[in-house]
Design a protein around this nucleic acid. Structure first.
Lengths: 176, 176
DNA sequence: GTCTATACTGAGATAGAC
DNA sequence: GTCTATCTCAGTATAGAC
């Protein structure tokens, strides 16, 4: 990886971390640059504005999502994996998703909302195909979003360890 | 209602509207005061700080939630009503919930997150009793949250009109 | 490719008049 | 109980050195 690419990636990581850990207000240019070990000017060389930073995350989501989808399509129990990872929320994909979910709440971060909407469409199609039922697919997506928000809101204790197991057991009783 | 109470309520309405319609960044003291037809100084007489404004919404949620719960407990199909109203998102309760959901994404709005957590506990207990199954109750709550976030993100077209019907039909097939 | 210095803006909040 | 004026601070962004 070229040095420039590396710095860009470090900056996105830093931004992501700050937003997830301390909310979007904490993801200032100064704090992000600091966390990534560059100066504000350094950051602005790579991402010309705050908006470009969000756009960077949005693009990262697309890349991760493509990998994720490839991985999911080769697995036997898609539903299981999909929901279980909504709760882990610590895989690269989950972190990017979570950060964008928070950013998307603010009007100005249009790029975040667009990326999330595209991903939703995409996963809806993929899950529909994998599960054989568009309604079940939609249900799973909404539950997954519900879990992500609670994670975004509450930290870890929002989700008792076995609750996903129980939700999965319940969903397994649904017709396929 | 005393005049002071009326102004307070108007200010909360204004704040809520701004946050829902244009994100938390738009809910500035100036804009809120303006929308409510008072000056910044006027607002700060009623709510001594931004935090107090959020706290005000949190308290409003508790009031609405109590009414909501009383209403729900007297209905035959709780699940139906509960989910259908997650999508309407335009009843007073829904608007307050939605605004706090957005505010809660920001670290500094601790009061918003606390109110949402309390409400979640509360509704989990109530739904568990009404539906006779804690897992189903949890599932419904998470789906509901999922619907709220998408509403928060996407506006209206995020939810095809009949999608809630289909989700309900699916959930109805689950054991009670 | 990265840094320092600095301009500009808008937010929250205080003081005190009416 | 509400208004105007003003202070302070932090955030984005620019310019230009290295």
């Amino acid at each position: 990886m070229a040095k420039g690419e590396q710095t860009r990636s470090r900056l996105l990581d830093a931004f992501e971390d700050l937003v997830i850990e301390h909310g979007e207000r904490a993801g200032t240019l100064a704090a992000t640059a600091d966390e990534a070990g560059v100066s504000k000017g350094g950051l602005l060389y790579h991402f010309g504005s705050k908006d470009a930073l969000v756009q960077g995350l949005a693009e990262r989501l697309e890349v991760f999502a493509a990998e994720e989808e490839r991985r999911l399509s080769s697995l036997p129990d898609v539903l299981e994996v999909f929901l279980r990872e909504s709760v882990a929320a610590n895989q690269p994909f989950d972190r990017t998703y979570l950060a964008l979910l928070k950013l998307g709440q603010l009007d100005e971060h249009h790029a975040a909302r667009e990326a999330l909407a595209r991903l939703d469409d995409h996963f809806l199609a993929a899950l529909t195909q994998a599960l054989g039922d568009p309604d079940l697919a939609l249900l799973v997506l909404r539950v997954s979003d519900g879990i992500y928000v609670r994670t975004a809101l509450g930290g870890s204790d929002a989700l008792p360890a076995d609750s996903v197991d129980r939700l999965l057991a319940l969903l397994a009783t649904l017709p396929r």
